[in-house]
Design a protein around this nucleic acid. Structure first.
Lengths: 201, 201
DNA sequence: GTCTATATGTTGATAGAC
DNA sequence: GTCTATCAACATATAGAC
């Protein structure tokens, strides 16, 4: 599962050029050149360009999911946990913006089988966030009209960052992520003033 | 500015295949075939495949912006206006999901000049929503920690729908859009219980 | 405006030496 | 595992008839 140095180099090069020009706009030559390798280098570790895209997408989602699961496990208070999850999910997207863009925007280039794997991973994010939300509802801290849709909206706050984030305009990633988490808590808190301003750590 | 029947046919065909296979995964032959035309048909009205993508993106954003401006103009109450804007923006994305996906996900295939136009249009959405938000803040109905970032989050709720919406799972577009609008109002309302439950029309 | 035919350049992938 | 050389297929765009 661990990548060798040469593999890592090729992987990072592919993420960079896929993010910039899209999957279809990238030639396998571009990837190899970015990694200072010959045009044939891509095919040493990957059977095709599509399989390389899949490897990137699958690894990216697995890493993000492991991160989110870690945050989930580190908290017991339901409000603090959702706050931390939205914040870390947002921050993860800001810090892995290229890989996240490739994963989210190039899905149509995957074979049906590979796409099914990535969509199954996506469902895991939803399941994890929903579980955290349910705990807060049971505790009386949250009031939510529609659990499924609200979960989508919490994830949307983080994922949509990859569409517009521009470090030249607003480079403070941690502050953006915390702002998202604060908005998330307001979205779901029980409608009493005291619950709407939870502690932030 | 109006499209002829043949133009419209080609346009719709292009939106459909770009949305399904991506810009890079689509051949001009696919577009022509979908519109029941010969492979050369694309070049009667468009100088290149890229120019066709640009025409789609520019038209799509212009239509969405006109729609949002109409909703803005139709309201005077700040809370009702933001509620309606988020709802209609969400609904617009659900009803024009293919064109919206092409516009958002294929931007890297545009020339720098064309991309600049689309990004300028994007800023107009932000400006319009921000203006609506400011009116509510001045009226004391909204309390917002960061105007710029909160505006992005309001738009995110609508735009991210195109990523996951699946009519086979939850086909009620109007209800999804209204749910988004309700969440938006909770996100920004002044922290008193009465303000958090605005009328919905 | 629509068609058929095709020129022209490109690209994913492989062969085979080292 | 890495390289150079190259193939076979393909895709954009154009030419020119109707």
């Amino acid at each position: 599962m661990e990548l060798t140095k040469a593999q890592r180099r090729l992987f990072d090069a592919a993420i960079e050029v896929f993010a910039e020009h899209g999957y279809g706009g990238t030639r396998t030559r571009d990837i190899a050149a970015k990694a200072d390798r010959s045009p044939a280098a891509v095919y040493v570790h990957h059977s095709s360009k599509e399989e390389l895209l899949f490897a990137i997408s699958e690894r990216t989602q697995r890493s993000a999911l492991a991160h989110l699961q870690g945050v989930y496990d580190a908290h017991s208070d339901p409000v603090g946990r959702v706050h931390a999850m939205v914040m870390e999910f947002s921050l993860w997207h800001l810090e892995n913006i290229q890989a996240a863009r490739v994963t989210q925007y190039e899905m149509h280039a995957l074979t049906p089988e590979h796409r099914a794997v990535v969509i199954a991973q996506r469902r895991e994010f939803h399941r994890l966030m929903r579980t955290a939300l349910e705990a807060g509802i049971r505790a009386g801290a949250f009031e939510v009209a529609d659990l499924h849709r609200t979960t989508h909206s919490l994830l949307a706050l983080g994922i949509d960052l990859i569409r517009w984030f521009d470090p030249g305009v607003d480079p403070d990633k941690v502050s953006i992520a915390r702002h998202n988490a604060d908005l998330a808590i307001r979205m779901i808190s029980s409608l009493s003033p005291s619950a709407a301003h939870p502690g932030r750590n």
